[in-house]
Design a protein around this nucleic acid. Structure first.
Lengths: 147, 147
DNA sequence: ATTAACGTTTACGTAAACGTAAAGTAAGGC
DNA sequence: GCCTTACTTTACGTTTACGTAAACGTTAAT
């Protein structure tokens, strides 16, 4: 049993939840193409089961895809996302491996905390711009009612 | 006078601040290469003055670079960053242009608010992993003192 | 006067992340 | 039995964001 099984995203046991998914189902759900999902597999980010040659995705696989897509939205490279995913199934018996993983986790945390500040700064600036523009348009634009 | 001049990043008037910069000064400051800065210029994200053929960067140019680098850290493409930068100098006299800009600003705000949530989720998960790993290592790893 | 350290343009090369055929297999409906 | 649909692999093409020379001009020091 790895660390992964102890967390939500990779192990939700919902009653009405489907057990498996096809590649095109997942592609549709996440707004990506089957090609993209296969590419992620080539890059080692996901390893679905097979029925013959056809890929069968489990709920855990779907959880990984959620994390992958989120990582992409945050601007991480696939290599970084892979590293992130690996944190979920670090073998607890390999102390050295676990130490390295802990290090990487802490680095990633620091990185995300910096990104959090960046997002907040940018949001603050954009909101300033937004209200300035809205105010300007309220005065000079829009022509609220024939004046 | 454009909206840009009304905001901090593009118009700080510090007393001890340098007035101009060379390309390699800025490259060093932001941890990028001159090639990269010239590429940003090719893409229309920045337009420094010239002394003959040599580029001379103003404090405003440096401000734009700050925003560009932050945008990159947030995972935006150069095209998106350009769109973002354009928000700063929307002509207040062009009502139509201003309306479109306001729209883009609001879209960008929504996008960043979503990203903020993503970052927070990811941070929460990573912190869970981190403490789980730290606890595990405290018990089985590290061998605190010969026991 | 030449060498070094900066700047320039032009242009080909490259890694990442897919897109886009092409060509084949396997299951289900009429 | 054939057609459609969804899956597969293989492989070349494309966009983005630069890296990396090559070849040249300008200033400053030796």
């Amino acid at each position: 049993m790895t660390l992964g099984q102890t967390f939500d995203v990779l192990a939700s046991e919902d009653a009405g939840a489907k057990k498996t998914y096809t590649i095109s189902e997942l592609a549709a759900e996440f707004g990506i193409t089957p090609r993209t999902i296969r590419f992620y597999e080539d890059e080692g980010l996901i390893s679905p089961a097979r029925a013959g040659t056809t890929r069968i995705y489990s709920r855990q696989d779907r959880g990984r895809l959620i994390l992958i897509c989120r990582g992409k939205r945050l601007g991480f490279s696939l290599a970084e996302i892979k590293e992130f995913l690996d944190l979920y199934h670090t073998d607890p018996d390999q102390v050295g491996q676990m130490s390295f993983a802990l290090d990487r986790a802490r680095n990633r945390i620091a990185q995300l905390e910096a990104q959090l500040l960046d997002v907040q700064k940018t949001l603050a600036e954009l909101r300033e711009i937004e209200s300035a523009m809205a105010a300007h348009l309220a005065r000079h634009g829009a022509v609220p009612r024939g004046n």
